[in-house]
Amino acid sequence: MDFWPAFIGFIFLLLAPFIGMLVIGLDRKITARMQNRIGPPVLQPLYDVIKLFGKEDKIVNRGQVVFAYAFFVMVVLATSLFCLRSDLLVIFFLLNAGAIFMVMGAYSTRSAFSTIGANRELLQMLAYEPIFLLVIFSIGYAVKSFTIDAIYEPLILKLPLALVAMVIVLMIKMQKSPFDISTAHTEIISGTMVEYSGTYLGLLKLTHWYELFLILGTMALFVIIPGNFVLSIIAMLVLIAVVYGIVMLIDNITTRLTWDALLKVALPLGIGLITANLIYVWYIGGA
């Protein structure tokens, strides 16, 4: 393996949770400004997680702790594979496995909120997993390989609609309205995370940062210009700013959809976008 790409990958792996944290902090700050108030400092998520790590352990049963660690390990494994520019499909399935473990952790306690949250998380998976898999498939179809190494031009040239579909995945994964049925704070008190406290809640939030990094990273793949490092970084920052800005705006002006509305809106929209894009790629000879 070449030294420089591996070294840059390693640096990104170390920075991954911080990047996730900064994006979430900026999200809260800008949301607050949109609501005509001052809002917390940008480093607030860092303070939250460190405070959580310093709290006393209070758990319901041992199983949920094991599943929280399993979730964390799978997501960090996926992130390290991403930074090593490995197979995108494997990364997707590892993220998937992580989410599966989190749902198992939520199911393992006999709590009404937790179980409802887990049910909703499964429905959410039914909505975003096909779209995510189709986005990765369309990347593989356009590039004729699933490894990140093989991407030779900015994917946005061939796959613009796939990027839009990826925004839907981002909204569902990051629990942004109108797709936030799983941690519907006012309905089920953060659903799957209800019975976690202290260190393990901090672990879940940390894993959430890694997940955000991964999804933003997958979107950044669409604008990477191989060979030109500085221009790629600038393009990535611009893309993330634009995309997350739109997501924040939609979050603040929409309300939550019910689960069948979620399935009826998100799935056809995502699948329709990818189908159109795949037909386009096939037409211009990407096959």
């Binding site: 199983g63 198992m104 199911y107 998976m125």
Partner: peptide, 16 residues
């Protein structure tokens, strides 16, 4: 994934 996880959820549901 949905139907297998639902099944697992019913089985591993335990009291404190």
């Amino acid at each position: 994934v949905v139907y297998y996880l639902k099944w697992i959820g019913r089985m591993i549901n335990m009291e404190t």
